[in-house]
Design a protein around this nucleic acid. Structure first.
Length: 253
DNA sequence: ATGGTTGCTTAGCAA
């Protein structure tokens, strides 16, 4: 089994202990992290060098930023991080790793929330779609993992959280999301659990919404076929950590 | 219609 994880940690320095204990417990082969909110020189040595992992950090001081951790059992040397031209505010990092018999590019993505600049969100999603379209045309398998900041369907937002036309649920952003999925990509968790109306990855941090599972599904693992067909199971760590997002771990056969 | 909480960039943002 190969485990691929994604987690918006909402400040990696504040989550250091829980991140390391989660890593030790889950031992994902690849972990994509978002909202690290730190530049590399701000990271403590415990995060610069994590036992058993290559670490790829792409962050700035205090805001946004992503990371990719790759198990040393998957790669003999540190896989280089790549940043597509449409990147801004350190929102995407891509590594290539051999998974089974294929070289797969794994992207850790933090899509802009859109509250500050909604058009920038649409542009970023559109560019991500074009990037995935190119990969599909070239037959290059992809895993797009991260906080995409869009809830695909009505059912991906708890009824108590629904409001008309709110960001994350608008028709135009959902349209780009569906176009992205049309690039030979599968929303793995929804595919594995099609009837679950309580499948959320983010909960507003007040009134015990997380304990009550009143949330949104905005964190995803999108996998190219035929990789997606190997997805066997997944878990959302609703009780893991103190970020407003839970970690998502997908197991591939 | 608004609020509530958290982490960061120390004081208000952004989420």
């Amino acid at each position: 089994m190969i485990r691929i994880a994604t987690w918006n940690v909402n400040g990696i320095r504040a989550r250091q202990a829980e991140l390391l204990s989660w890593l030790a417990a889950e031992r994902p082969d690849v972990a994509c992290l978002q909202e690290i909110k730190a530049s590399i020189d701000q990271l403590p040595f415990e995060l610069r060098d994590i036992e058993g992992y290559w670490t790829g950090w792409h962050g700035e001081k205090g805001y946004s930023g992503v990371g990719v951790l790759v198990s040393k059992s998957l790669a003999p040397t540190a896989p280089p991080l790549d940043h597509p031209a449409f990147d801004f505010e350190q929102r995407i990092a891509v590594i290539a790793v051999a998974l089974g018999d294929r070289v797969v590019r794994v992207a850790s993505v933090y899509v802009p929330n859109g509250g500050r600049d909604y058009q920038a969100k649409l542009r970023f999603l559109g560019a991500l779609d074009t990037w995935a379209e190119d990969a599909a045309r070239d037959g290059q398998p992809l895993l797009i993992c991260g906080d995409l900041n869009v809830a695909r369907h009505e059912r991906d937002v708890h009824p108590k959280e629904r409001k008309p036309n709110q960001i994350g649920t608008r028709p135009d952003e959902r349209e780009v999301f569906e176009r992205l999925l049309s690039r030979n990509l599968v929303d793995v968790c929804r595919e594995l659990d099609p009837d679950n109306d309580g499948l959320f990855t983010w909960w507003a941090p007040w009134r015990n919404l997380r304990q009550r599972n009143i949330g949104w599904r905005i964190d995803y693992v999108l996998a190219s076929q035929p990789l997606a067909a190997r997805a066997a199971s997944f878990r959302v760590g609703r009780d893991v950590g103190t970020s407003d997002h839970g970690p998502v771990v997908v197991e591939f056969a």
